[in-house]
Write a protein that binds this DNA or RNA. Structure first.
Lengths: 153, 153
DNA sequence: GAAATATATCTTAGATACTAAGAATTATAC
DNA sequence: GTATAATTCTTAGTATCTAAGATATATTTC
């Protein structure tokens, strides 16, 4: 007997949603003309705000050498820029270029709108539960990822 | 002024959760000794059940040439096997090797358990809303991804 | 049923992006 | 001021992707 399709076991819809999320990020990256790594790094910079190249390397789990390439490409396309840190000239701060973000913002705005259309179906209490679940889920995954990494061979 | 951190705009927790999901998949892949592409493809095979190499190429948005490499590596590591389709000998069915999946199943079981711990906090009605949101969200993302791809340059 | 066309996967060549190690620059400690 | 540390970049080697075409099998047409 071959493996049964999963997806409906355990906690039902979440696994399905999480699989689609992967494809969504891929599709957004394609649409912006970025590879998946560069898009992930841009997303980290957008979420975190200006940060050093080294911090970006840590957060993305890439080497600093790889980050040099990532930032080169993102800078060439105008999404981020390098800014020298005046207090420590070894450091390079990476920051998003606001003028370049219109297309990304538009994508996320449309996503937010479509999500809002879905949540409009629910009561106040239900919406709060969904939001709470997302927060707790994010925290749980954070811990889980750290656990996985610590046990890594 | 630089770009504000996002994450709390629109529909609050979901964007946060979705960002962590990306890291989770990366961490699981690392833990299994797979690259992210191979892990994604394995996940597709597990979710979908046995499928042809060509179908896997479509679903993963890779070329058939890339899939040859993916399946070679997954097969070498014992996660999947190629089985000739008796009805059409051009086709190669890719199927998971059940005996190899203990570690993956364990990871997902632990994730499911931790998710269950979270959902235990909620009422029946709230749980239903969370589940419903996940399903509708998955469907919405599906449509969104197709829309993005169709508008691609 | 033979030839032409279509389909499915694999192979190859070239491009891209990663890691690991170390170089170059700047900061900190003694 | 010299030694050590920290930060980013560079380089060499490797892995994996795409695009194009080769190979094998199936289907259609005559």
């Amino acid at each position: 007997m071959s493996t049964k399709p999963r997806g409906m076991d355990g906690v039902n819809g979440w696994r399905e949603l999480s699989a689609r999320t992967i494809f969504l990020h891929q599709a957004i990256a394609d649409h912006l003309g970025l590879n998946i790594t560069d898009h992930k790094c841009l997303d980290i910079v957008l979420t975190h705000g200006p940060m050093t190249a080294g911090r970006l390397a840590e957060d993305s789990a890439l080497t600093t050498g790889a980050i040099t390439g990532v930032v080169d490409r993102l800078e060439k396309k105008g999404f981020v820029r390098r800014v020298a840190d005046p207090h420590d000239r070894r450091k390079t701060m990476i920051e998003a270029v606001p003028e370049s973000l219109a297309e990304i913002e538009q994508i996320f705005a449309r996503l937010a709108q479509k999500t809002a259309e879905i949540t409009a179906r629910y009561s106040e209490v239900e919406r709060a539960a969904i939001d709470d679940f997302a927060h707790r889920g994010a925290t749980m995954i954070d811990a889980f990822v750290r656990e996985l990494r610590s046990k890594s061979s």
